[in-house]
Design a protein around this nucleic acid. Structure first.
Length: 585
RNA sequence: CGGGGUGUAGCUUAGCCUGGUAGAGCGCCUGGUUUGGGACCAGGAGGUCGCGAGUUCGAAUCUCGCCGCCCCGACCA
C-alpha cells in the first residue's frame, strides 16, 4: 500500500508541448515518464510499476514457451559485430563508444558499441557451450535495455533510442525443431498479449536485415502506427506492407504471344510514365514497362514493373544483396546507354549487359504481355515489346507494392489496409548466424550439423505505450487490470478525519489481501482534483471514502470503465471490495 | 539527410510583423475564506527571453551562424 502524499505521482493539467498523440500526452500527464532528451525517458514510479508488470508477465509466458532467462552485456566490443554477418547494415543505428579508456594509459583503445540486439553475443556463446545434440534445443532470453540510434525517435516511448525489449534466441538440431520452437514462441506471444489485455494480431512480415526464412510481426491496430497492415478478415490473411502480396496475377496465366515486331518510335522530351500516357502517345500506364536501376553490393541491377505499379523496395531483399540502393543517373548511363527517362530492358538495347547483376521482373508485367518501354536511347521508346520474347529477364519475382482492393492471395476477396504499431516480431532465422559463427553440434551418428536458429523480440516499453493508445478515453488512461500500476485507488476525500483514514487503511489491507496493489489518495486536495487525477492515472477500481458518506454509513465503489457509482454500506465494504478484486483478477 | 515549424518562469503560453520597463494562466510559498468533479480573495518567490556573433544610442523583437525539440519525408532487426 502506498500513500499518495508520500509517493511520487506528478500529474499535469496540461499536455506537454512536444507530445502529439494521445498515449504520449497521457504518459506524461499521468506522471509515468519524463523526457531527458530525444527518445530518452526516465520512468517515474507509476511508469516503472507498469513496466515491471509487463516484464513479469512476459517472463512467465516466455518461460512457459521454453525460454531460459539470461543477462547479456549491453556494451559490446565492436569486433563482435565486425565478425558478424550484418556489421555493414547495423552500424548506422548503433551507438558507438570510441574512446572508452582514453587517458588511462592504454595506447590503443578498443572500440565499443551499445547493443541494439544480441544475436552476435548469444551465438558465439552457444557455439562454445553447446556441442552435443543432447543439449538441444535451447532457447535463451533476456529482458533488458536496448540502444538504437534511431534516425528519428518519435511519439514518446513508441520509437525511443533507449528502450526495454524482451529478446529470445532459439537453437535447434533440425529445421523441424526450429519450426516447433517458432510456434512455441508464437503461442507465448499470443498468451502474453492476451494476459496484458492488448489486441495484437500476428501478420506475415518481411525478414529485412535479420535475414531468415519467415517471420511474423505482432501488430496493435492503431491509427498512429508506423506500419501498414494488409489484411482480409474473412480469409484471415494479414501481412505487413513490405511482405504483402496479392492474387493479382492469375496462377495459370499463359504468356502472351508476340503482337508483332518490336518497333522504335520517337518520344522527344518524354521522361515519365505520365508523359507517355498523354497524347499523342496515349499508352496507358498499365501497358508500360517501368525500368528501375539499383545498385546491389556495388553492382547495378534492373527491376521491371508495370508502369502503374510502385516498387516495394523491401522486397528486393529477396535478391540476396547485403546492401542495395537506387542507382544514380551517372551510374546508369554507361550500363544501359542513357539516363533515366527512356530506360528499358529489351535484349540488344542494353549497352553493357555484362555489367549488370541481373534483370529482375515483377510477375505483374506478364499481365501486359505486349507493351511499351524505353529504348535506352534518349527520346525514343519501343512498342510491341513482348515479355517472353524481348525482355532480358534473369528472374521473375514479387516486387510491387500491393494496393487496397486487390484480390487477397488466399481467397480473392478485396484486401484492406490499416495502420498498426509493431510490438513484437518473431523470425525463423535458419542457419545464417550459426554458419557465420560455426555454431554446430554433433549428432548421435558423430556427424556435425549447424544449429537452426530463431529469434524473437517484444518491445516492452513500446507495448506499455500501445496499451495506453488502445485503452484510454477523454479523461485519461484506462488500465487493464493485469498491468495497472495499482489496481485499487482508495480515494479519501477528508483525510483529516481519523475515522476516514482508519477505514481507508483497513480496506486497503483487505484489497491487498485479495491480491490487489493499492494506492491511497490521502492528499489534502479538493475532491474535484482527486477525481480528475484518479481518472487520469486510470486505476481500474476506485473506492471513495468521504466524510459525507461516512455520516450516512456508506463508501463508494466505481470502476474506471463504468459510469455508475455503487454505494456500499461501510459494514459490507470489506467483503464487497474483496469480492470485486477477486473477480477482476 | 531533405522539407516545414518551434525555442520566453517548473508547465502551457502572449509579446516578435512595426526595436524602447518581459506579461498572463497553471503550479509553488504565506495568510484567510472554502470543501463531492481541476475553488476564491489578498500577498509573495521565480526569467542569462536556447547559445554565439552582428546591426543599433538601445535587441525577446532585425540579420547571420550554431544547438535543442516537434512534425512530414527518407530510414526503421
Amino acid at each position: 500500500m502506498k500513500l499518495w502524499s508520500q509517493y511520487f505521482v506528478p500529474t499535469l493539467k496540461e499536455s506537454p508541448a512536444d507530445a502529439e498523440i494521445a498515449s504520449h500526452k497521457l504518459l506524461v500527464r499521468a506522471g509515468l515518464v519524463r523526457k531527458l532528451g530525444g527518445g530518452l525517458y526516465t520512468y517515474l514510479p507509476l511508469g516503472l510499476r507498469v513496466m515491471q508488470k509487463l516484464t513479469q508477465i512476459c517472463r512467465e509466458e516466455i518461460e512457459r514457451g521454453g525460454g531460459i532467462e539470461v543477462w547479456m552485456p549491453h556494451v559490446h566490443p565492436a569486433e563482435v559485430w565486425e565478425a558478424g554477418p550484418r556489421w555493414a547494415a547495423a552500424r548506422e543505428i548503433m551507438f558507438r563508444v570510441d574512446h572508452a579508456g582514453a587517458g588511462k594509459g592504454r595506447s590503443k583503445e578498443p572500440e565499443y558499441v551499445l547493443g541494439p540486439t544480441h544475436e552476435e553475443v548469444i551465438t558465439p556463446l552457444v557455439k562454445t557451450e553447446i556441442t552435443s545434440y543432447r543439449d538441444l534445443p535451447k532457447n535463451f532470453f533476456q529482458i533488458a535495455t536496448k540502444f538504437r540510434n534511431e534516425i528519428r525517435p518519435r511519439f514518446g516511448l513508441m520509437r525511443a533510442r533507449e528502450f526495454v525489449m524482451m529478446d529470445a534466441y532459439s537453437f535447434d538440431a533440425s529445421d523441424e525443431g526450429a519450426i516447433k520452437s517458432y510456434h512455441a514462441m508464437k503461442a507465448a506471444y499470443e498468451a502474453f498479449f492476451r494476459r496484458i489485455g492488448v489486441t495484437a494480431i500476428a501478420v506475415e512480415a518481411d525478414t529485412g536485415v535479420m535475414g531468415g526464412s519467415f517471420s511474423h510481426e505482432f501488430m496493435v491496430p492503431a491509427e498512429i502506427g508506423d506500419d501498414d497492415v494488409i489484411y482480409n478478415e474473412e480469409s484471415g490473411y494479414a501481412a505487413n506492407r513490405e511482405k504483402a502480396t496479392s492474387g493479382l496475377v492469375p496462377a495459370g496465366l499463359a504468356d502472351a504471344a508476340p503482337a508483332g515486331a518490336t518497333e522504335e518510335f520517337a518520344t522527344p522530351g518524354v521522361v515519365t510514365i505520365a508523359a507517355l500516357e498523354a497524347a499523342p502517345y496515349a499508352v496507358p500506364a498499365d501497358r508500360q514497362f517501368k525500368t528501375l536501376v539499383y545498385v546491389g553490393d556495388g553492382k547495378p541491377f534492373v527491376v521491371i514493373l508495370r508502369g502503374c505499379d510502385e516498387l516495394e523496395e523491401a522486397k528486393l531483399g529477396a535478391l540476396g544483396f547485403t546492401l542495395f540502393r537506387p542507382a544514380t543517373a551517372e551510374e546508369i548511363e554507361p550500363v544501359l546507354g542513357t539516363k533515366p527517362g527512356s530506360l528499358g530492358a529489351v535484349k540488344g538495347t542494353i549497352r553493357n549487359p555484362s555489367a549488370l547483376a541481373g534483370v529482375f521482373a515483377d510477375h505483374a508485367i506478364r499481365l501486359i504481355g505486349n507493351g511499351t518501354t524505353g529504348a535506352n536511347k534518349d527520346g525514343f521508346h519501343l512498342r510491341n515489346v513482348n515479355v517472353a520474347r524481348d525482355l532480358a529477364v534473369t528472374k521473375f519475382g514479387d516486387f510491387r507494392r500491393v494496393r487496397p482492393g486487390e484480390p487477397d492471395p488466399k481467397s480473392g476477396q478485396p484486401l484492406k489496409v490499416r495502420r498498426g504499431i509493431e510490438v513484437g516480431h518473431i523470425f525463423k532465422l535458419g542457419t545464417k548466424y550459426s554458419e557465420k559463427y560455426g555454431a554446430a553440434y554433433t549428432d548421435d551418428q558423430k556427424q556435425s550439423h549447424l544449429m537452426v536458429m530463431g529469434c524473437y523480440g517484444i518491445g516492452i516499453s513500446r507495448t506499455l505505450q500501445a496499451v495506453i493508445e488502445q485503452s484510454h478515453d477523454a479523461d485519461g488512461i484506462v488500465w487493464p487490470w493485469a498491468v495497472a500500476p495499482f489496481q485499487v485507488l482508495v480515494c479519501v476525500l477528508d483525510p483529516q478525519l481519523p475515522e476516514a483514514m482508519d477505514l481507508a487503511r483497513k480496506l486497503a489491507a483487505t484489497a491487498e489481501a485479495a491480491g490487489a496493489d493499492v494506492l491511497v489518495d490521502d492528499r489534502a486536495e479538493r475532491p474535484g482534483v482527486k477525481f480528475k487525477d484518479a481518472d487520469l492515472i486510470g486505476i481500474p477500481l476506485r473506492l471513495t471514502i468521504g466524510g459525507k458518506g461516512l455520516k450516512e454509513g456508506i463508501v463508494e465503489l466505481k470502476w474506471r470503465t463504468k459510469k455508475d457509482v455503487e454505494k456500499v454500506p461501510v459494514a459490507e465494504a470489506a467483503a464487497r471490495l474483496g469480492a470485486a478484486v477477486s473477480a477482476a483478477k
